[in-house]
Nucleic acid binder design. Structure first.
Length: 255
DNA sequence: AACTTGACCAACCGCCAACAC
DNA sequence: TGTGTTGGCGGTTGGTCAAGT
């Protein structure tokens, strides 16, 4: 499914330079790596601000930290992602968006930077963005709504599949499928979804539902809003009719 | 052979939350 | 409570290589 190999082991980095403050930037030399590694192994990865001075490096602390975390730290894998890793990254990206540190935490030996680079270089182009389906039609409410999806599902499975094909939520969307079995009956009613751009950086999804479920969502103190942490999607009860916040990291699922 | 273009990835930049004082 | 510092994070940049022209 995925083709992902390091083309070579050549170093492609910025040329070392020393800025006006005497701080070195750019590619790390072998000697610098050895100094940093020796220091960390002896004293541990703490007080990054002091590390350059104590380790005898002309680097800023931030640069040392980055070098250690992304390159020198023991246990790191380099390149050659397995199909399992690729599929896991895609799956996690669907779930978490560009939260690379969260994704990398579930991939032993991989750093957030490496996962991010790998996604941008290899995987992003392999995951086709979903487009709006022909079932979209405009709705009267909420009035700000630009688009609204109207769909009648018989079961949660139907609904999950609909969401997968329409919104690109492939993982059968725990937002919907984790409901209690008894709540499946609710899917006989109409579910409306809308999408709206509030500004360039923020996409919002609007949803309302005339027989709103109670689990597994966390209700607010008025029991009018329900929150799904998995997707950063907040859904509102029919009394409030619409409005939901949306993690902007998921924009690329929808745009 | 020379040049251009795109892919790749290490490293940097800027923002922000947590923490210390 | 306000301010400064630090570490963490995600986005972006810049340099090199390989392939194409």
């Amino acid at each position: 499914m995925f083709v992902s190999q390091r083309r070579n082991n050549n170093i492609m980095v910025r040329a070392p330079v020393v800025d006006k403050d005497g701080v070195k930037r750019g590619a790390w030399s072998l000697e610098e790596d050895q100094k940093l590694r020796a220091y960390i192994e002896k004293y541990g990865p703490w007080k990054w601000r002091e590390v350059p001075t104590l380790a005898g490096l002309m680097r800023c602390g931030k640069s040392c930290r980055l070098r250690w975390l992304n390159y020198l730290r023991p246990g790191l894998k380099r390149g050659n992602y397995t199909n399992e890793e690729n599929e896991l990254i895609c799956k996690l990206h669907q779930k978490y968006g560009n939260r690379w540190s969260t994704i990398a935490a579930k991939l032993p030996g991989r750093t957030d930077n490496e996962v991010k680079n790998h996604w941008n270089a290899h995987l992003r182009k392999q995951v086709k963005p979903k487009t709006e389906s022909s079932t979209i039609k405009h709705e009267g409410k909420p009035k700000e709504l630009r688009l609204s999806h109207v769909y009648e599902a018989k079961t949660s499975k139907d609904f999950a599949e609909y969401c997968s094909s329409t919104f690109g939520i492939v993982e059968s969307s725990s937002c919907f499928s984790q409901q209690t079995s008894s709540s499946d009956d609710n899917f006989g009613t109409e579910i409306n979804w809308g999408m709206e751009d509030y500004n360039i950086d923020q996409l919002q999804i609007c949803g309302y539902y005339d027989n709103f479920w109670t689990e597994p969502y966390v209700w607010d103190h008025n029991q009018t809003n329900a929150f799904s942490e998995d997707y950063g999607i907040r859904m509102f009860s029919p009394q409030q009719q619409y409005e939901t916040t949306y993690d902007h990291n998921y924009c690329d699922l929808f745009c």
